[in-house]
Write a protein that binds this DNA or RNA. Structure first.
Length: 258
DNA sequence: ATGGTAGAGTGTCTA
């Protein structure tokens, strides 16, 4: 079974690329972030014609998550138990969706960006991650993958230039500790062993031709429970998908599970 | 400090 995650930055504007990606890599389950579409706006026809089911949550403009699967889409949950909101009643629904696909529980996650270190959204991000880790304790003994845009670059090697991030979010000790807490609890970054680098970036800002100059970040991850991780036979980052006109600013990450 | 690009949708907001 092949599982992928992709911050697509608008599903409607990139549906042709999504369908081509699914076919090109023979993907069974695709977790999407930043879909920027209400459920009633989803472009479903081409996906359904290819045999996929879709579960989604989100608004027309911000955030939004979805799971596309052709190996079953069961026990769909919008939001995880204890997930904090941000005042807007829609917000909790736009950052996490889970489902059982082919016997594996997949969570498509869009971790809060944090904006600035002195912004309330930064505290919200840390709180959100702490609550996710608490909830993840209940899933750790089953084959589970926490996939998506974590908005954290856990190591210096995941950043094109640490000096440029001296005062930025995504690399602060508290964010990195929040990510490390999952690893300490037995969760596994299942992609890194199969992507030896140095090209491990998954995101390149649209500004300043960052992709063309390969000045990116690694912030998209597949984090597996132990029983998921031991079944992973391969993984790669589809950096070519970031190339050319009409690309998302993130590349898809693909994992094979036996 | 600011700006640069892209996507939502026409006002800016978010990343």
């Amino acid at each position: 079974m092949r599982i992928a995650t992709w911050n697509v930055n608008s599903l409607r504007s990139r549906i042709d690329r999504v369908e081509a990606f699914l076919e090109r890599h023979d993907v069974d389950v695709l977790a999407l972030q930043e879909t920027k579409a209400r459920v009633d706006q989803l472009p479903l026809m081409g996906l359904q014609a290819r045999g996929y089911e879709v579960a989604a949550a989100g608004t027309s403009q911000w955030n939004g998550v979805a799971i596309i699967s052709r190996v079953g889409l069961d026990e769909v949950e919008v939001g995880f138990p204890g997930m904090p909101g941000w005042g807007d009643p829609v917000e909790p629904e736009a950052r996490a969706i889970g489902a059982v696909c082919g016997g594996v529980r997949v969570w498509s996650l869009y971790v809060p960006n944090g904006r600035k270190v002195d912004d309330p959204h930064y505290v919200y991000k840390l709180d959100w991650l702490a609550r996710l880790r608490e909830a993840a304790g209940a899933w750790a003994d089953t084959p589970t993958a926490l996939v998506g845009d974590w908005n954290i670059a856990p190591r210096d090697e995941d950043v094109f230039d640490m000096k440029q991030f001296a005062t930025s979010t995504h690399v602060t000790p508290r964010e990195r500790a929040a990510f490390q807490a999952f690893l300490d609890a037995g969760w596994v970054d299942v992609v890194r062993p199969h992507a030896p680098g140095p090209d491990v970036y998954t995101y390149w800002d649209y500004y300043r031709q960052r992709y063309e100059r390969n000045r990116g970040l690694r912030i998209d991850f597949v984090v597996g429970s132990p029983s998921f991780a031991e079944r992973v036979s391969g993984a790669f980052i589809d950096r070519e998908e970031r190339a050319g006109k009409g690309a998302s600013d993130h590349a898809p990450v693909v994992v094979d599970v036996d």
